[in-house]
Design a protein around this nucleic acid. Structure first.
Lengths: 193, 193
DNA sequence: GCAGAGTTAGTGAACATTAACTAACTTTGT
DNA sequence: ACAAAGTTAGTTAATGTTCACTAACTCTGC
């Protein structure tokens, strides 16, 4: 578990990331915003990588929680995918820093530990969707003449693209509407009518 | 036009980016690899941002060239989209640094000029695809009951996702096959049969 | 009285960039 | 034709800033 201060460090880090980007996440900025000195940070985390790792862990567990919540109800697979779509987007809306983290993979390139953790998170997300797609196909709800692998790619890729557009400051962007329209498009394409 | 040395700086930059990531693109690394001193770089580019801008320009014009080549032939819109798909992927294969550049947007966040250029490139790509989708719909080749905007999002998003997976070192990745399979999946979904 | 959480003051490394200068060309005025 | 003036492309040395991180000390609550 995290101490109060550790949690504060993570929260503040996410705040910084969402406002000025992951580049702005320096120990100096972090300590300034919290209101303590730079070395004080090191009383709570060994080094900066530990902080980034904790951020990714937070990211991972909040995603897991959402999956658990949505996947257990006994909706149809397609409905579950829709819930995950909306759930993810809601999470991004509540915590825009998550978006920055998602697209910051390049920055973690020189740190194998971080890169591995990101790959792990992406893999797990991908597998959950893939399993749902396969289930939907088995139940005759989703077109079965198409490899689940590529359908999964399309589903995740388009969500990422939408988030990217949002992040890039596309004005006239009604979040809820865009998400549901995109999902409806996908649904219309892959559903067995 | 670029002088020989300027071109060499861009080429070497791309080389660095593709091997150790955009983080490794420092004036020191650059000059070392070229075999001149650090200050000598500044005889050819005013500052680092100018270099990055030149890289994006290279990126932009090479994309434009590809579009021109593919869009002028009198194939069907769907076939044109396929060519663009394959053309892009081929370009990435030949020059892996382009992939790194694509996903390095977060790094340019603090530089509005660079960010703007990236938005510009993405916008143009998006508009080309969107026009082709609309044309395909008008000709009754692509399902018309779906907004071209979202189809475009799906097409671009899934290509990006495939590239991302490739970049992340997904082993057992047969490039040509993966691209054509993904495109065939998309085609099967959106085509009017 | 001591451990946990803070402080001040500092370190070394990396970074982009500048200063001052030089050698080797090219241009230009007479 | 040729010397003065200017340009190009490089050098070494240094600057100023930012960064993550550390040593050594102090405060405070149990």
């Amino acid at each position: 578990m995290l101490t109060d201060r550790q949690q504060e460090i993570i929260d503040t880090s996410l705040e910084i990331i969402s406002t000025i980007g992951i580049q702005g996440l320096t120990i100096k900025n972090l300590s300034k915003r919290i209101g303590i000195s730079e070395p004080a940070i090191y009383r709570h985390y060994e080094n900066k990588i530990s902080i980034l790792l904790a951020i990714l862990d937070y990211f991972k567990s909040s995603g897991e929680q959402m999956f658990r919540k949505q996947v257990n109800v006994d909706d149809s697979p397609l409905k579950k995918i829709e819930s995950i779509y909306e759930g993810h987007f809601l999470a991004f809306e509540r915590n825009p820093s998550l978006v920055s983290v998602i697209f910051s993979e390049e920055i973690f390139r020189n740190e194998p530990i971080l890169q591995e953790k990101i790959a792990e998170i992406m893999d797990r997300n991908s597998n959950v969707i893939k399993a749902l797609v396969a289930e939907g196909q088995a139940k005759g709800e989703i077109k079965a003449d198409i490899e689940s692998k590529y359908l999964t790619l399309i589903i995740i890729g388009s969500l990422r693209m939408l988030v990217k557009k949002w992040q890039m400051g596309d004005k006239a962007f009604n979040h809820g509407e865009e998400v549901s329209k995109l999902f409806n498009t996908i649904k219309a394409l892959i559903e067995v009518k």
